[in-house]
Design a protein around this nucleic acid. Sequence first.
DNA 1: GTCTATAGTGCGATAGAC
DNA 2: GTCTATCGCACTATAGAC
Lengths: 194, 194
Amino acid sequence: MARWEPGARGRLRAAALELFADQGYDETTAAQIAARAGVTERTFFRHFDDKREVLFAGSEDFARAFLDGVRDAPPEAAPLDVVAHALTSVATFFPDERRDDSRGRWAVIHAHPALRERELLKLAGLAGVLATAMRERGVPDPAAVLASESAVTVFRVAFGRWLAVGEERSLVDLEREVLGELTALTTPASQVVP
Amino acid sequence: MARWEPGARGRLRAAALELFADQGYDETTAAQIAARAGVTERTFFRHFDDKREVLFAGSEDFARAFLDGVRDAPPEAAPLDVVAHALTSVATFFPDERRDDSRGRWAVIHAHPALRERELLKLAGLAGVLATAMRERGVPDPAAVLASESAVTVFRVAFGRWLAVGEERSLVDLEREVLGELTALTTPASQVVP
DNA sequence: GTCTATAGTGCGATAGAC
DNA sequence: GTCTATCGCACTATAGAC
């Protein structure tokens, strides 16, 4: 038997999610999370920069899926088509089986401002790297930033809708719908046919 | 003479901004800020829920200006026209005289992730109340949320541009420009003239 | 792994304004 | 008398330094 069980990081993440859901974020100490994962408090802080970060450790893969969608879009695609492509790509990360898990996670995060703050920072960082990727495709700068911000907004709104009770449509479908609503908003009929 | 000087809150805000700018956010303790303002650390935390909040205490007026712009827009205005109206309204809060102050504040906030996090949370809250105000105007829900999010995005981008070194155009002008870029993005020529 | 500074909270006491 | 802003002190948890 090993000196310590492997997978401490994963156990810490699971323990934190459970405890936050049961007792609330404030009422849960880092020591409690560590104890449930069978490690010391010190180990918790070696894995995660702060207490909030334990809930966001998996977000790199998510960001990469988003980014890959931008890079894999056909070269001639217009900025908003690139966005659509990226949204499709990231949706593969959230198959319907993950919907209930995502609901639990969402509830925990949105129950405490400190966790929402961290989520918003992550999403802002994502928008930043998306903008860089857009520029690398040759999209000039006002468009690159605005397209990236819009992509994140559409994802956030669609994701929220995906989690709504009773909702059964897939995330891709909802993303498409929201993206359509955004273009409809900025393109009233009077502008299409002046 | 009174037992304590009035205006402790304002002194704390000014002291915090100076110290954060001079020494950095992490290197400044709440006790230092309090000392410079002539109060105790306990008083600091009675005025502000946490150390970050001292930099964002003035943001209610800003949010109100934004909100008033939504409410004062003509009843028949389309969602994006309401957004334009709100952007004009909030720009009155940032006359050119405030540009240098805003630059200093912006530099402090963007020098530390913890402060950016708080800024993002405030802006998300703003988008939320804007959406509520839009709904009160009768704008239905996908449009209300998307218009509000877009309004905040346009403001953020325009504000960043307003602060750029050498930039001399007014915030209203820049907001109009960015809003135009957003509509251009979501309305490529092929859609306008199919 | 231990030790320490700082953030942030709870509560009683105090002093002036009304 | 009440109300409000402050102080002063004890305390826990986070987070980082050693």
